[in-house]
Design a binder for these strands. Structure first.
Ligand SMILES: [Zn+2]
Ligand SMILES: [Zn+2]
Ligand SMILES: [Zn+2]
Ligand SMILES: [Zn+2]
Lengths: 138, 138
DNA sequence: TCTATACCATTATATCATTACATCATGCGA
DNA sequence: TCGCATGATGTAATGATATAATGGTATAGA
């Protein structure tokens, strides 16, 4: 019986903000949101602490190349490795299943003698909307 | 006839420092090295500029999850995507070929409607030496 | 000479993240 | 009830990473 890990108020506020944003936000961007500020969160550390907990629960992912955080696309969260594809233009980001690549990648690392922990994949490019916009520009 | 892109002094100093280090260094760590300081490099921006050029040439790679830079394992450099595996304990990092995973990863991204540019893969874990050390600890 | 280009220096500032320490609430055994 | 551990929170300061703004120097070609 693992105790139901209910989120605290700060954690809920941050998770809601990220869910609403639908794209990655940095800790300071979260802090600047009116919806967050009015809830009384006003220091970076408060945000980082909430994010730490949310990441532990697998409800939020960190995108290393942006120093930003994205709400998981699955309601219940998860800790399995996933990949991200990130628009260079508008920063829209989508979580992707790795479709067995993680197995191959892990095997390469083990072939080099490493014991593998986390696997992170980040791809950059243009999102569908920005591809279309670029096409219109000629 | 692409002009031979000879490196400037600053660029050479930074590349040598990274090559000698054999592991990822942050810009500020590079700046703190005696071998770099004595060559007259003394501001962060100087280091970043040299790194930008070296990355353009494919001679140095950036590891996003460490905010650090690693000399390419190939003398001539390259811009093809590679993966890294990084020791959580000692930070030793190794460059790995992606063995076709990049193709699959890119395909997933394209299936989501994205036009893919860069692909970055970073794995964390324990290097062979640290695995052995951990085993001795029991 | 005039202009363009590339490289570099210096200072200040912006951005991202953590440390240190105090406070408050809750739950739990004595 | 008291004492105490635990975990969440608040505040302030600082550390760590990266870029902006400005201008100097050297060089190459018209
Ligand atoms: Zn997820
Ligand atoms: Zn976009
Ligand atoms: Zn390389
Ligand atoms: Zn190691």
């Amino acid at each position: 019986m693992t105790a139901k890990p209910k989120l605290t108020k700060n954690q809920s506020v941050v998770l809601k903000a990220l869910t609403r944003a639908k794209k990655p936000l940095t800790a300071y961007e979260i802090l600047d949101l009116a919806t967050v500020r009015t809830q009384g969160l006003k220091a970076p550390l408060t945000i980082y602490r909430a994010l730490d907990r949310l990441r532990d629960e697998g409800l939020v992912h960190r995108i290393e190349s942006l120093n930003a955080f994205l709400a998981c696309c699955e309601k219940a969260g998860h800790t399995e490795p996933v990949g991200f594809v990130i628009c260079d233009n508008c920063r829209k980001s989508v979580e992707l299943r790795l479709s067995d690549c993680e197995t191959h990648l892990g095997a390469s690392a083990e072939a080099a003698g490493f014991q593998v922990g986390e696997i992170r994949v980040e791809m950059t490019g243009l999102c569908p909307a920005c591809v279309k916009a670029a096409a219109r520009q000629g």
